[in-house]
Amino acid sequence: MRRLLLSAVLLLLFTGVAVSPAFGFTGPTLSPAEVVEIDRAADGSVIVVEGEAIGEHLRARGGGRWVNILGDDVGLGIWVTEEMAESIEYFGDHRNDGDIVRVVGTLNVACDVHDGEFDVHAQSFAVISRGGPREQEIEPIKGVVGVAGMGIAFVLWRTYRQRRERRML
């Protein structure tokens, strides 16, 4: 009896996971650039999109948050819950690479809820790899050339002033 119960629970769990949008959706994973170019027939359908979370998460009118994700140098707005937004640790900017997230959600070419925005309403949201600090490569030679240029400019400026004053005398 116990085994039967355990099997039933496992089966239920498996079925739940399989039909949940987070894991069960088997469509191709798109980049934000591909989503923007997508055939308009896909409007209203469930898609999977992956990209880097950038900037910060923002308050959405009427509840929820906006997370903008980046892929192939194109950004896309994802409407998520507070909990989903809080799961992001790093947002991409000059100092950091953002977390890479995978979203399963409904594509809206002109969202009715958000005044015609081109967005994706997340049904499930997962961070698939953590971002982290980006390295700054410092090249001191640039500073040396720059300071040398300023030195030359100073000498040329003095020459200009002296020549001008001499001419005026």
Partner: peptide, 10 residues
Amino acid sequence: FVLGMGVALA
């Protein structure tokens, strides 16, 4: 920018 400044001023 220091380099850019140096070039522009010179």
